[in-house]
């Protein structure tokens, strides 16, 4: 198992290198350079001074040399500084990370917590009226744009009913900070989770149906095990295995979805930072987000694969 984890981590390295190379190359092809962002365009500057500034910042070196320098520094934990700001990129992202993790984790928990039981129900009561209602709900949930759904629930639950705050992470004046945080979290987590609740409902349904038809289920019943044991010990555990694959396939989309949701709810996470950095053309910050975001996704995928191995003892990793 340890060897498997180590090998997976080693495979992640070229992936990360690839992603950072693509983004680095892209940013260097972008029009405009940091020098022109630093100088005041109304004041004439001698070309020699511009050259000197470029040399000081290392911008006259070829792109691949600069990439190697960036990579070396990144390995030491230095992701550089954001444009027009003295905050190190790493600190900027580090400040945003907990909010993003809180949002994505709770959306995922919501998706699993609601989607899996509903899916099991749908499979066990196949073609019941509720199964059809859930199928229809799933179609709508994957079809509605997340940001439109978010606007809708803000309109209903915040603007009209006043049950939840419209945006932000917390209200410093609130008496109970934990409760206040949960109130702030409720709407964004629901908006991010909706599509995935539907996804898990569908996947669980088909996974359970698949398992129900297997011979070992008949065997378990034939040897007189109580129905509950048959379903949960023999059925659910086997269905779980294919659902974990779905979990890891969902992770990149989860982080992508968080970009939009954070923006709408002014949730101070990495996604909101990314969108505002694009608008300000703050490339060092975007590089950092690409690196750390991709690392997070790859680590979550690895975690899902480890869960997979725990759930399915037949899998032997060598």
């Amino acid at each position: 198992m340890l060897r498997y984890i180590v090998r997976r981590l080693l495979i992640s390295i070229p992936v990360l290198l690839g992603i950072t190379m693509i983004t680095f190359a892209a940013y260097n092809l972008a029009p405009g350079d940091p020098i022109s962002a630093m100088i005041d365009p109304s004041v004439p500057v001698a070309p020699e001074v511009l050259e000197k500034m470029k040399e000081d910042l290392g911008l006259n070196k070829p792109v691949y040399v600069r990439y190697v320098i960036w990579l070396k520094e990144a390995l030491r934990g230095n992701l550089g500084y954001a444009y027009n700001s003295s905050t190190p990129v790493l600190k900027k992202i580090g400040d945003r990370l907990p909010a993003t993790l809180a949002l994505t984790t709770s959306a995922m928990l919501l998706a699993i917590g609601l989607g899996v039981p509903l899916g099991v129900y749908s499979a066990l009561r196949q073609y019941s009226a509720l199964d059809y209602v859930l199928t229809f709900f799933a179609f709508v949930a994957v079809s509605i744009p997340a940001f439109f759904f978010a606007l809708g629930i803000i309109y209903i639950f915040s603007v009209r009913l006043g049950l939840f705050p419209v945006q932000g992470l917390r209200d410093p004046d609130a008496a109970n900070q934990v409760l206040d945080f949960l109130r702030h979290l409720a709407l964004p987590a629901t908006a991010l989770g909706l599509e995935r609740i539907a996804g898990f409902q569908r996947y669980t349904r088909s996974a359970v149906l698949e398992v129900l038809g297997q011979d070992y289920m008949t065997t378990a019943r034939a040897k007189g095990l109580p129905e509950r044991t048959v379903l949960w010990r023999h059925g659910f555990r086997n269905a779980l295995i294919s659902m974990i694959t779905i979990l890891s396939l969902n992770i990149p989309g989860l982080f992508g979805g968080a970009f939009v949701i954070e923006w709408i709810f002014s949730w101070p996470g990495m996604g909101q930072l990314a969108v505002s950095s694009v608008n300000m053309r703050d490339y060092p910050t975007l590089m950092g987000i690409a690196l750390i975001g991709s690392t997070l996704v790859l680590l979550s995928n690895l975690l899902a694969d480890i869960l997979y191995a725990i759930a399915d003892p037949r899998i032997r990793y060598t």
Partner: peptide
């Protein structure tokens, strides 16, 4: 390509 967090790259490319 499947493990790439697409949205990050898409935002990058669109920005550039």
């Amino acid at each position: 390509v499947m493990t790439i967090p697409t949205f990050i790259i898409v935002i990058t490319l669109v920005a550039v």
